[in-house]
Write a protein that binds this DNA or RNA. Structure first.
Length: 293
DNA sequence: TACCCGTGGGG
DNA sequence: TCCCCAAGGGT
């Protein structure tokens, strides 16, 4: 069983003070909009690739109203190669909703945030916590791995459970400011020390109360996590097609898209799905481009 | 619940 | 080279 308590949480907060990365969206002067943008960009995309895009993005669209006034085409281009470009569309849609429903102010409570496009359980809590200083337990992939090891003596986290939220909340300090810090600190611990590959237990601030370590590092049980293929999938084809359109200053003919992928059936299916998703539009004369509305 | 949705760096 | 995986969300 676990020996982790709120003392463990306090130790993680203390560790964070000495080990945290200096990331731009953690500066004290950033507002909730800047935090929201960073959190959406960080969904499944590593910090190093997000950082330069986030800087450009915030300089160009410093408020929800500024982004809401932009065309999808410009937003998709600015998203660059962060991946999963539907996130860019949803971020713009979230900006529109913030302007229309909330007077241009990012909401500060979890249920209202969760109602925005592209904002789910994790991101809503992250914005409330990091953007507004509201103590909230947050559960991302890092936190799930830390909880699995520290509390449950498991090598890996299983699929997300509602109980994850309670598990991490049980370790949080009672002081509100330290509880806020604890949420980001636990994520940081998972990102820097309690990593997915080879964990760096020698420098872990809570190794003495880690259930997994105390149990002798038992190996993962159950089915291995299946890896997503990429080469040859629709995701790759969609990426190729979008690449052509991002680079094009003018609408392009279908023949130009044909060069992006040999398999005509798959190519057609992917172009259709991009049209359905609103990532591509067809002009009245049958050409293709990033959507202008 | 399981699957789909991009991209690229590191072991 | 190949494989793992990275601050998830929507369906």
């Amino acid at each position: 069983m676990s020996t982790a308590t709120t003392d463990t949480g306090e130790a993680i907060v203390d560790w964070y003070a000495t080990a945290a990365r200096d990331l731009p969206w953690r500066r004290p002067d950033v507002d909730a909009w800047a935090v929201l943008v960073s959190e959406v960009m960080l969904q499944q995309t590593p910090v190093a690739r997000v950082e330069p895009v986030w800087r450009d993005w915030m300089a160009r669209w410093p408020t929800p109203a500024a982004l809401a006034a932009e065309t999808p085409a410009e937003v998709i281009r600015a998203w660059g190669k962060l991946g999963y470009p539907r996130r860019a569309l949803r971020l713009r849609e979230a900006a529109l909703a913030i302007v229309e429903r909330h007077g241009g102010v990012v909401p500060d409570d979890v249920p209202t945030l969760e109602a925005l496009p592209g904002i789910g359980t994790y991101t809503a809590r992250a914005v409330a916590c990091f953007g507004y200083g509201r103590p909230q337990p947050v559960v991302d992939t890092n936190v799930r791995r830390v909880v699995a090891r520290l509390v449950h003596a498991k090598a890996e986290a299983g699929t997300a459970r509602a109980a994850d939220l309670e598990d991490i909340a049980a370790l949080a300090p009672t002081d509100p400011e330290r509880a806020v810090r604890f949420s980001v600190a636990t994520m940081e611990l998972g990102a820097l020390v309690c990593v997915a590959g080879t964990p760096r237990c020698a420098v872990c601030p809570v190794r003495d109360s880690c259930a997994w370590r105390l149990a002798g590092y038992p190996a993962h049980e159950g089915p291995p996590r299946r890896v997503q293929k990429f080469a040859g999938t629709d995701r790759q084809v969609r990426g190729r097609l979008l690449d052509v359109l991002r680079a094009a200053a003018q609408p392009v003919e279908a023949a130009e898209l044909d060069a992006a992928w040999d398999d005509a059936v798959q190519r057609s299916r992917c172009l259709d799905s991009l049209l359905t998703d609103g990532l591509v539009e067809q002009t009245p004369d049958g050409l293709f481009r990033l959507p202008h509305s």
